[in-house]
Every structure is written in C-alpha cells, then in structure tokens.
Design a protein around this nucleic acid. Structure first.
Length: 438
RNA sequence: GGCCCCGUCGUCCAGAGGCCUAGGACGCUGGGUUUUCAACCCAGAAACGCCGGUUCGAAUCCGGUCGGGGCUGCCA
C-alpha cells in the first residue's frame, strides 16, 4: 500500500492540507504502507522555494515523516513535477498517438469519449458514477507545453506506484478525468478516497479571511505539536469511543480511512486551545522550563540575564498550570523581567484603600526583616500580618498582588513574592505606599 | 444554469432499525473550591433540516424537498 500527498508550493502549509497529509500518513502507518511526498509545482509562476520549505518543515513539525519523495529521495529523482516536464510531454504524445488526445491552438487536449459512464468506489462515499458527456475535453499540455495538474498528477501517481489516492473533496469532480487518462494509458486505477473539506467558523471554505489558516501561524501562536496533531485527528474522524485526547501511537492503532466522515468540518480553534492547555500541563516540568525560557527569550528578542532566569525558574511551575498557549507566558512573567515595570491603574484603584495601605506598610516592614526569605516564611508572615490587622485576605493580598505584579491577574501570590525576591518586592511595596501618600 | 458531494446540540464526534425520553467533548450558563487568574468538582441549557414512504418499530433504509458546499480554467 502506498499513499501520497502532493502539495503545491503556492502558499504555506494550510490547516486543510495538513489534515489531508495527516490522514494519509495515519493510513499508511496503520497498514504498514509507504507514505510519499512529492511537490506539485507545475504552476511555475506562483510556486516558490520558501513555500516548499514551509510546507515540508511544518509536516515534519507535526511528526509526519515520509518514506519516499522530496528531500528523502527514492527511485524517481527529486519528486518535483517541475523536473519531469519531459515525461509529461512524452505521455501526452503517446496519448495523441493512440488517439486519446489531440492538439488545438498549440495545446494538447484529452479527447473525452462520449456516452461512457465512469465508475469508481470511494472509501468514504461509496459508489461514484459520472457521465463522460458532462466532461469537456480538458487540457493536458498548455500551449507552452507545460503540463496541467490533471496530466502531471495522474502520470506521477502511475509512475510512483500509488495504490490509494486520498485527497480533498474539491478534486472529486476531477477524478473521472484522471480515470479517463489512466484508462487511455491502459493502467489499472488505484483506490480513491476524497476527504471532506475544512471550513471556517462561518461555514465557508477555510481561507485567509478567517485569520490564521497556516500551521506555521499556529506554531507561532504557541500551539504544541501534540495538540495540533490530536486536534486535527478529531476533524472528521474519531477513534470510535469517547476518547478525545490521545497520542500518535493510539491514533495509528485505530485509524481507518473508511471510517472518516463524509461531511465537511468546521475548524474551531477553541477546542484546539483546550487541548493545548492539557498538553502544556502534562509536559514534564523540566522540559516545560526549558521550552518556556526559550519562548520568553524569543518574545523579548534578547538573551535572558542569569538573574532573570533564576527568578523565572521559581515561578514557571505555577505558570505552567495556567496558560493555554506558550504565547501566554510573557504576560504572566513580565513582572519578573528586567523590563519597564508598569502597574495597571484601574487594577490599582480597585484594590487600594486605607486598610490595604496599612497592610502594605506592615508587610513591607516584616518582609524587610524576615530572617530567611523563603516561600514558607513569606506565606507565614503575610498571613500573620493579616490576622494582626484583622483584615480580610482579599484586602491585603490583592493589594500586594497589584503592587508587585502590576495586575490583579498573576501567578500565585506567595510564589510571586518569592520569585521576585526581597529587594524588588520591598521596593515595589514602597512605591505603592508612596503613591498613596502623595 | 449543468454535474457532483454533504445534512445529529453553537462547534467536533458517538450512533451502522428497537439498548435513544439521542451519548461524550469543546464552548456557554449556574454553583462549589479559592487571596487573583487558571486548574479541578457538581449541575444546567442545547441537536436527529422538512415532508412523505418502507416497517410492529427509523436519527439509522428509500424518495422528494429545502439548505450548505465543491467542480464547471491553458489554477491546483
């Protein structure tokens, strides 16, 4: 069994193409088959090397490796259609010779036979039937003798020995043309499977108007590969039970193209975000720390100072539990970085009061004189002060939170104080107290 | 217009004639926990597009209809 995907390098790897690639890959893996990747770059004008690189690197990022094809090699050259124009012309000529095609205005057209019913079985849709009368004579070779998609794709599928063609449903109406070519070449047709399309939240074909539709964009948004892989699996397919979160091995063990749903699905990133949060939370603390430091450094576009790294390491375990994407990191830890420190004015107004000022003052004194600035001591000190002043936790704690993190929303308070360190904490508290007195 | 595909909660999926007063998940609403935000726990609202037919019995089969989508390029 051999499957393939044939992306055109005329754009970044699209979510829809990624899903098609994923299903092909899964089916190949599930059956011990071969997965091939070729590049359909017959549209020389719009194809670029950058898009090709983006597509291949993002396929790899998703974990979709291929056994044969572009960059990994095989028996058929570089697996780019742009390198095979001679081959397509050769086939076009032989189709002319055997009467299946003819020249017109410098182009070569396929001569569609009249009154023929073209039938094939689709893995997902069952028996398909088209009348040749509804198909126009289509172009095989353009007048500049470059091949069209129909010719190049069909010839490649034959030459590369593809046994299962699983592609988007948008090609369903073109499949009869491809079968006609294969018949004219006296080639046994492979199995077909037309995967449902993916749509945006408005029910229209997923496109740029829906915002980010490239895998690259989601990667940059801080989506983990495991989450993207898992989520894409769920679009049009399920393992059969109520299992929603699973890994690659599980998907491979359950996957079957025949069980993919025939109806199109809407790509809704809310569930992807939810899954991403789960995957972030279950990442091993050490590797989360490593990835987080890299991400923060990238976001800041600078190296982190050792002192910053020390502070971050103390807060990261708490942050790991409350972010949805890796891009949420920065706002959570900003108060620990050597960057301009700003306190949200509205937040400060809402927590500032005569009582909280007294608390801020008392706590600052005590923290300054704390023997050892440990997490346990900080918590004990802050709670004890609350009791002494007979204040509610909210009054004291929230004012300290805004004072030292700049916001009412932050990682856990004692951890934040601890991570920030004694000097900075005391300094920020002083600033908050001064602000009030002036 | 022609040809083709599709139609279960807002969304993703379960359901292959009785187990369905339709199940799970995301999201949403309410509550609990709580120093914030998350996480977590509990509860709730929420769907078989419509009309016929087959059948003792239909979300499941058939027909029609309506709705959505794709193709109809010397794009792929």
């Amino acid at each position: 069994m051999k499957l393939r995907i044939a992306p055109s390098p005329t754009g970044n790897l699209h979510i829809g193409n990624a899903r098609t690639a994923l299903f092909n890959w899964l089916f190949a893996k599930a059956n011990g088959g071969t997965f091939l990747v070729r590049i359909d770059d017959t549209d020389i004008e719009r194809s670029t090397e950058d898009f090709k690189d983006d597509i291949l690197s993002n396929l790899r990022w998703l974990g979709l490796d291929w056994d044969e094809g572009v960059e990994v090699g095989g028996k058929h050259g570089d697996y780019k259609q742009s390198s095979r124009f001679n081959r397509y012309q050769e086939i076009a000529n032989s189709l002319i010779s055997n009467g299946s095609a003819y020249e017109e205005n410098g182009a070569v057209r396929f001569k569609v036979p009249k009154n023929q019913t073209i039938k094939f079985k689709d893995y997902i849709r069952g028996d398909m039937s088209f009348e040749s009368a509804d198909i126009e004579d289509f172009v095989l070779l353009r007048s500049d003798s470059s091949p069209t998609y129909h010719l190049a794709s069909t010839v490649d599928d034959i030459d590369y020995g593809i046994t299962v063609i699983a592609r988007g449903e948008d090609i369903l109406s073109s499949t009869p043309k491809h079968i006609l070519i294969m018949n004219a070449l006296d080639f046994q047709i492979p199995d077909f499977c037309h995967l449902p399309l993916l749509f945006g939240p408005d029910g229209k074909k997923l496109s740029k108007r829906h915002g980010d539709t490239s895998v690259e964009a989601y990667k940059n948004k801080g989506i983990l590969r495991e989450a993207m892989f898992n989520y894409l699996c769920l679009l049009g397919w399920s393992p059969g039970s109520d299992v929603e979160k699973f890994d690659v091995d599980y998907a491979v063990s359950k996957f079957d193209l025949h069980k993919v749903l025939p109806n199109s699905a809407i790509f809704d990133e809310k569930k992807l975000l939810w899954l991403n949060g789960i995957y972030i939370r279950e990442t091993k603390a050490s590797s989360f720390e490593k990835n987080a430091l890299i991400k923060i450094s990238e976001s800041l576009q600078r190296e982190l100072f050792d002192t910053e790294i020390e502070r971050l390491k103390n807060i990261l375990p708490s942050v790991q539990e409350r972010i949805e994407t890796m891009n949420d990191l920065l706002t959570q830890v900003m108060f620990l970085l050597d960057e301009p420190y700003l306190v949200d004015n509205n937040d400060w107004e809402s927590v500032n009061s005569p009582e909280s000022q007294i608390y801020l003052f008392e706590v600052r004194e005590k923290l300054m004189n704390l023997k050892e600035f440990t997490l346990e001591n900080i918590e004990e000190c802050m709670r004890a002060t609350l009791n002494e002043l007979n204040l509610k936790p909210k009054v004291g704690f929230q004012s300290v939170r805004v004072s030292i993190t700049g916001s009412k929303i932050s990682p856990p308070l004692f951890e934040s104080v601890y991570a920030l360190g004694r000097n900075a904490t005391v300094a920020r508290l002083a600033e908050s107290i001064e602000k009030f007195n002036n």
